[in-house]
Nucleic acid binder design. Structure first.
Lengths: 107, 107
DNA sequence: ATAATGCGTAAGGAGATGCTTACATGTCAA
DNA sequence: TTGACATGTAAGCATCTCCTTACGCATTAT
């Protein structure tokens, strides 16, 4: 019944869509440039891009007959925010650094 | 066709499952204690827990007739790792601090 | 004008997901 | 032992997902 709009977490649940976002980190790209990285048909790529678009994770720029897709990284914030409250469980460099910062700025 | 095992990203794509993980942050819980936080039937909760179990995000502890579920936060690492390489896009305290660290450790 | 390019949309199908109710199983309590 | 409790499993159903091929529609090139 899926009455909860898929949203960002749904959008990033598919590995192909995560890879598409990863590609767009290096800059805007037209669909064909994206599609050549995948085995699936080009329409399938279009459909994945649509999911990303609906989630607000990318925008479309029309340039002549091309459509360039652009990453909207801020939209990943819900993911970062959610994962952030698990960070205390990883005792790695990041956690140590953050604690270090908290200390060094609390003065 | 989904030949790519759903994995962690699939497991956290459903809001109910994220909330279940969030509940388990405060400690192990038997199914009923989890289920009372949701409107869905108890079997539905069991099925969600199964997805989390298959993804390795929780483990089961049998205690008499109860089964307590326990969070395995390390399993969220793929999510943290993936999101981490978008962190340069958020110019918040963390990013500034990390850059600060990178500088201060490169000596 | 005609063809080629770039891309979306439509239609359809296989399989996954998410839910329900009914039932099975193991454990504790009287 | 008999029943209540805690939970999983089975079956069934509606819907969603993800893919394909076929087609439509602009835009650019010849």
């Amino acid at each position: 019944m899926m009455h909860t709009e898929p949203g960002v977490f749904g959008a990033i649940s598919h590995p192909a869509r995560r890879r598409m976002l990863d590609l767009l980190v290096d800059g805007d790209r037209p669909v064909n440039a994206i599609a050549e990285n995948f085995e699936m048909s080009r329409p399938a790529v279009s459909q994945h891009l649509r999911v990303l678009l609906d989630a607000g994770l990318v925008t479309e720029q029309r340039h002549g007959r091309e459509r360039r897709y652009r990453l909207v990284p801020e939209r990943l914030e819900p993911v970062r925010d959610w994962i952030a409250h698990y960070e205390r469980f990883w005792d790695d460099n990041f956690a140590r650094l953050r604690r270090h910062l908290e200390k060094s700025t609390e003065q």
